[in-house]
């Protein structure tokens, strides 16, 4: 039996993550990730098969630790990235939250996401969508994201993708 408190821990954390991206509260967002967090957006190998091994196959994004995400924030805040100026506005929707595994200090969560992205420069908008798998771990900092795998279903990408588009 998975205690309902675990479901609400997972739900709260995933909602928070989405809200912080929408509100561009980058420091609060990255604080949700453990130092050793793996962040992985696999490519599709074919129309039907996802890539399964980031060490042998291309990923859209693969970071073995939170340091990769920190690099992304440096770029976002640099003010020197044309693709980031002006910033896109987003609305992250997270639903279908399902606990796959639960232990005292460890939760495996699957969720479905859709992210609406508006580009104020070209006045265009698009939706990216897919599902995510989170591993949450409990430590001295409370519950943190220790692994996140993001499956992007519509992978004929637009002209730019950044972490806040996913």
């Amino acid at each position: 039996m998975i205690p309902s408190t675990h479901v609400s821990i997972a739900t709260r954390l995933l909602y928070r993550e989405a809200a912080l991206l929408d509100e561009r509260r980058w420091d609060d967002w990255i604080a949700l990730f453990a130092q050793h967090c793996e962040y992985w957006v696999p490519t599709w190998r074919t129309e039907a098969e996802l890539a399964t091994d980031p060490q042998r196959e291309l990923s859209h994004i693969y970071y073995a630790s939170r340091a990769g995400l920190e690099d992304r924030l440096v770029r976002i805040r640099s003010g020197r990235s044309p693709a980031t100026t002006p910033m896109r506005r987003t609305a992250h929707c997270v639903s279908n939250i399902e606990l796959l595994n639960a232990a005292e200090d460890r939760l495996e969560v699957r969720s479905t996401w859709a992210n609406h992205v508006f580009d104020p420069h070209h006045r265009t908008q698009l939706v990216l969508f897919g599902w995510s798998e989170h591993r949450l771990e409990y430590g001295s900092g409370g519950w943190l994201i220790a692994r996140k795998k993001i499956v992007l279903q519509n992978d004929q990408l637009p002209a730019m993708i950044d972490i806040y588009c996913l």
Binding site: W44, R45, T46, E57, L58, H122, L157, A159
Partner: peptide, 10 residues
């Protein structure tokens, strides 16, 4: 290397 990367720009 396996893995499809495609995008469209305007």
């Amino acid at each position: 290397v396996p893995g499809r990367i495609g995008f469209t720009y305007n």
